[in-house]
């Protein structure tokens, strides 16, 4: 498949990139690894007039720890490099697990973390060739007013299938967003929107420059599990990121976040509450799994039915909680 025509710009510094973006507005798209964008361009779902390459911007390649207790990872960090970064893996195992679960080795060699954090949503009725899309009534995303995935839906329900997004939300990460003359640090949970068309708050003229992961106090445990049809390269049928603080006082700050099941990562408040009240007991874990299934709202049914995705969500909640429990037991054992 062929790319549409576009103008290619490669700024030498971040400031310059921000200026170009400020001028171009929605006519421009940021090109980093291009592993998602170029496919979408070939399918003509996006046809930017200008591609702004940020691949060589050194400002986006930093990995550092700051005074506020955060580790900052530049958005341009290559996924293969990141997957091999032992220091980050030690501190944030669930995050690195998610990085390693992205696509395939070949794609990770090209792609960067910023791209996965900002991954565009997908839908079987949208991510198709132009001929394919044209065969159907226009949907919310192609300028119409129907949803083919969920009949009768009033908005677009395309899915956010980023592997890292649920982890960032679960870990209370912050996302550094810059545009000309403005630099903001946004909690991950507020970064994502429940909208299949505009799934992040990112404006066309803005760039994600880094993600900031909180170092925590040592009591944190985290897990990431991705269920997909095949290993190697696949978007998740459903994924989960879980974290909790586990210490003598009990289990606090439980976060259960599902990915690849809606337009944004879904935070399971009620299921988490079950654990915070009862701890990581077997019966509480079972109950949390059941609660998770009922807690979910509308689910888009791609490849599987909504009911099956609900089932997977419950299974993943239990698996993730068991993993947290196992990690606690192991660490406890080591100390003793």
């Amino acid at each position: 498949m062929r790319l549409p025509r576009f103008e290619y710009v490669r700024p030498q510094a971040l400031e310059e990139a921000l200026s170009v973006l400020a001028q171009s507005g929605s006519r421009a798209k940021i090109l980093a690894g291009g592993t998602d964008l170029l496919v979408n361009m070939k399918q003509r779902t996006v046809c930017p007039e200008v591609l702004v390459s940020i691949k060589t911007l050194s400002e986006l390649l930093m990995v550092s720890s700051d005074a506020q207790g955060f580790t900052a990872i530049g958005s341009g960090a290559n996924l293969t490099d990141l997957a091999a970064n032992a220091g980050i893996a030690e501190k944030f195992p669930a995050f690195i697990q998610a990085v390693r679960a992205i696509a395939s080795k070949h794609i990770r060699n090209m792609a960067c973390i910023g791209g996965n954090v900002c991954l565009d949503t997908r839908c079987w009725y949208y991510n198709q060739s132009k001929l394919w899309r044209d065969a159907r009534e226009r949907c919310h995303r192609t300028g119409g007013s129907v949803c083919h995935a969920i009949k009768g839906a009033a908005r677009c329900h395309a899915i956010n299938s980023s592997d890292t997004a649920p982890v960032l939300v679960a870990l209370d990460a912050k996302i550094s967003v810059m545009k000309k003359g403005e630099n903001r640090l946004i909690p991950a949970r507020q970064f994502y929107c429940d909208d299949g068309i505009r799934n992040t708050i990112l404006e066309p003229s803005a760039i994600v420059t880094a993600i900031h992961l909180p170092d925590g106090n040592g009591a944190g445990r985290s897990a990431f599990i991705k269920l997909s049809m095949r290993r190697g390269i696949d978007f998740a049928l459903c994924s989960i990121a879980a974290r909790a603080n586990i210490n003598g006082a009990g289990v606090t700050d439980v976060r259960l976040v599902l990915g690849s099941i809606a337009s944004m990562p879904i935070v399971l408040e009620k299921a988490a509450q079950v654990i915070m009240e009862a701890g990581l007991t077997q019966s509480a874990i079972e109950k949390a799994g059941e609660v998770a299934r009922t807690e979910l709202g509308i689910i888009t049914n791609l490849f599987t039915s909504a009911g099956y995705k609900r089932q997977l969500a419950g299974v993943l909640v239990k698996q993730a909680l068991n993993e947290l429990k196992g990690k606690t037991a192991k660490r406890g054992g080591a100390k003793a």
């Binding site: 198709q128 394919w132 159907r136 095949r230 190697g232 390269i233 696949d234 490849f303």
Partner: peptide, 20 residues
């Protein structure tokens, strides 16, 4: 669906890989 293949790509047509 509707005479169209809903998953006409090697990403969505779940051909296994050597891992399987």
């Amino acid at each position: 669906e509707g005479g169209q293949v809903l998953n006409p790509s090697l990403l969505d047509y779940k051909l296994p890989r050597p891992f399987e």
